[in-house]
Write a protein that binds this DNA or RNA. Structure first.
Ligand SMILES: [Mn+2]
Ligand SMILES: [Mn+2]
Ligand SMILES: [Zn+2]
Ligand SMILES: [Zn+2]
Lengths: 157, 157
DNA sequence: ATATATATGAGAATGAGACTCAATAAGGAT
DNA sequence: ATCCTTATTGAGTCTCATTCTCATATATAT
């Protein structure tokens, strides 16, 4: 985590009369140190391993703050648990998810983005965000005859 | 509900050694009689009003059957409750949802659909389905100064 | 250092949806 | 029409991610 990001976080907190705490700092640091799509418990376990005393409630609360401040992106891949990803490390993209092994491939298509804006505009909507996921079977999982899963599959649409 | 749809349902049931019951028939009829995006409880209340004795468990179970048989589409608009829509009445489309009043506008863009296929293909994925929602403020809700909600807003991405 | 508002965490609450299992009902066979 | 096997139903229980409660702890302004 850079000094710039720290300053940015402190400013965001002050903006809302929120206080800097060791937990919030540790959560920000942990989140910025990963490029994965992690759920609350991934972050919780990572912090505990680092001997950071923190509760799930605080992680959820802090992730909300980080989302509002633009540090993380909260995403619903349809399996009932939210995933959070470092938003500073990457530009905007959407996700393609393997229904069998959970593998995630990121994609970005300027034309799709453009058309989303157009559709909103055509309908008088002020677009705030979008959620776009492609679900299927990755190359590896297509080959397996009728084999076992490796990870948490996404089951909902 | 047409005789054709009834036949289609009976066939689908027989295919899986499932039986026709008054509840299943009532649920199919109710679902085919609406073009809205309804959650389990909407259907539950609609059926109770018609004096159909049915439980939520049966509605969930039957909607799963109807989804597999292609009668309904199950969709996750990100607020924690699934919506179900009559799939026979419409061709494929995706949804734009007002974050304030819950209004849903349907859209379909051939180019977006085409590009989704291309992205999957480029990455060796066998595409099974996609989930694509645009979130924002509808025209009416943009005008309201800072007013009250009307319906259940979608809060998650 | 004090005052005061905010933050934390343990545990309880929430809520959609899935599951259990005893009682009920379909429907093929006769 | 009746039997018999197997599927279905529903009341209630359970799950599990996330949110809430509230007493205690801590950050920050002065
Ligand atoms: Mn990503
Ligand atoms: Mn629709
Ligand atoms: Zn896979
Ligand atoms: Zn609206």
């Amino acid at each position: 985590m850079t000094t710039k990001h720290l300053r940015q976080f402190k400013d965001a907190l002050k903006q809302d009369s929120l206080r800097m705490t060791s937990q919030r700092l540790a959560i920000l640091d942990d989140v910025l140190g990963s490029e994965e799509h992690r759920e609350c418990d991934d972050i919780y376990l990572s912090l505990r391993q680092k001997k950071v005393p923190v509760s799930r409630a605080t992680i959820y609360r802090t992730l909300d703050i980080l989302e509002k401040a633009g540090f993380v992106r909260k995403m619903d891949i349809g399996d009932g648990r939210f995933r959070y990803e470092n938003k500073l490390a990457q530009t905007h993209h959407d996700h393609m998810i393997c229904l069998k092994c959970g593998k995630i491939i990121e994609f970005m298509d300027r034309e799709i983005e453009r058309r989303q804006d157009q559709i909103a505009s055509d309908n008088g909507f002020h677009l705030v965000k979008h959620s776009h996921q492609l679900y299927g079977l990755c190359g590896a999982c297509q080959d397996l005859p009728a084999a076992e899963d490796q990870s948490a599959p996404a089951s909902k649409a």
